[in-house]
Simulated assay, not measured.
Amino acid sequence: MSRTPGETDAATDPDAGPLPFRPVVPDEQWRDWRWHMRKRVTNAEKARQWIRLSPDEEEAIVKAAGKYRWSITPYYASLMDPDDPECPVRRQAVPAMGELAEFSGAEVDPVGDMFYRKTNRVVHKYPDRVIMLVTEACPVYCRHCTRKFHTTDVDGTYFRDDEGGSYDEDLRYIAEHPEIRDVLLTGGDPLSYQDGKLEEIVSALRAIPSVEIIRIGSRFPVLLPQRITDGLCEMLARYHPVWLNTHFNHPKEITEESAAAVDRLLRHGIPVGNQTVLLRGINDDVATMRRLMTELLRVRVRPYYLYHCDNVTGVSHFMTSVEKGWEIMEGLQGHITGFGVPQYVLTTRIGKIPIARPSYSETPDGLLLRNHRGQEMVVDSSVHPIRESDLR
Rank of each mutant, 00 (worst) to 15 (best):
G6C: 03
A16M: 01
P18R: 02
L19E: 14
P26I: 05
Q29A: 14
Q29L: 15
A44Q: 15
I51T: 04
Y76L: 14
R90F: 11
R90Q: 10
Q92W: 06
M97L: 15
L100N: 07
L100D: 12
A101S: 11
P110W: 04
T119P: 02
Y126W: 13
R129A: 12
V130N: 07
M132W: 07
V134C: 12
P139H: 07
V140L: 06
C142Q: 13
R147H: 00
Y158S: 08
F159R: 13
D162P: 00
G164P: 01
G165Y: 00
D170P: 02
R172P: 00
Y193I: 03
E200I: 13
E200Q: 14
V202H: 08
R215H: 11
Q226H: 12
T229C: 06
D230I: 10
G231K: 14
E234L: 00
Y239S: 04
V242L: 06
W243Q: 05
F248M: 06
K252E: 11
K252V: 13
S258V: 05
V262L: 03
V277M: 00
D285F: 02
A287R: 12
L292C: 03
R302Y: 04
L306N: 07
D310E: 14
V312E: 10
T313C: 04
S321G: 04
E327V: 10
I328F: 05
Q333R: 15
Q333M: 09
H335I: 01
G340Q: 04
Q343V: 15
T348Q: 10
K352H: 04
D365V: 02
L367I: 13
Q375I: 02
E376K: 15
V378D: 09
S389G: 00
